[in-house]
Amino acid sequence: MNYFFNKNGPLISTYLIISIGFWLVFLIIVPQLYMFDLSFRPNIPTLLRGGPDDVYTLVHYKHFLFGSETSGERYNYVDVGVFLDTILIAILITLINLCFCYPIAFYIAKVATAKTARLLIVSLIIPFWINELLRSFALRILFAGEGFINNVLIKIGLINSGINFIAMDVALYTGLNYAYILLMIFPLYNAIETLDKNQLEAAEDLGSSMIRTHFRIVIPHAKAGIASGCTMVFMLTAGALATPVVLSSPNTFWFTQLIYQWFNMNDNWPRGAAYSVVLLTVSVVFVLLMMRIFKVKIGEIVR
């Protein structure tokens, strides 16, 4: 602490501590703790808060697992189903994203000339100046029944009548894949960039095929970047709201849409909070588990 003050001077040190402290405490820790607390309280009118009925309860978590007491089913198949779907699809999308972004990141980091690399990075970034909602709607138009893609496919004679991409959730998966592509590419790019080019040539000189070089040399080197990209894409995909709202088919539900409903339409904040806590906890546990399995430390991810 003393060292920190001596190094940065009192003014900058105080600024850093106050601003980072404010961000951490008031914008992250306090609201999350409030949510956590709220998720264990009954849904009662404002007037009764603090009264004798305002006691800690697990009723919302029970609802998530077993459904309402009036329903005849043993478990809350709908909500748990939506939740598992969301997590599984988020995992799938993360994997597809990784497969899709790795070649791009490798190309920018190791193959392209400096000029091409700059051009590619700029072309990756510029589309993200457009608002997420607008991008989702644009995709919806592209994938619509009489949309651009269907029209082209019909015109070149590949299909006779339009494919319902929205109902098949193709639009949703494309949108979700595209939404966080930068958060995958940049960690990968940063990690691959630090690999000494001679290592690639040495492997080639020793007879290694392109694929083997990637699996034995590049991927082990970029492991932390891969973990970092996957973590962010997974978390954000599982927690996405705008894209699923715009692009999901009428019978696909994203778990965040459920949470949104509890908060906004049903005006049941404690239940919404409980559902949020479930999503957050499971996502974090899943990420930590993956890091344990692939032997990546949290410090490496931040690098």
Binding site: N198, Q199, E201, A202, E204, D205, L206, S208, R216, I217
Partner: peptide
């Protein structure tokens, strides 16, 4: 290609894995 030639190269920085 380098992987098909009967040569082996030692790099300036060695490039050990």
């Amino acid at each position: 290609g380098p992987n098909k030639r009967p040569t082996s190269l030692i790099f300036q920085n060695l490039a050990l894995f």
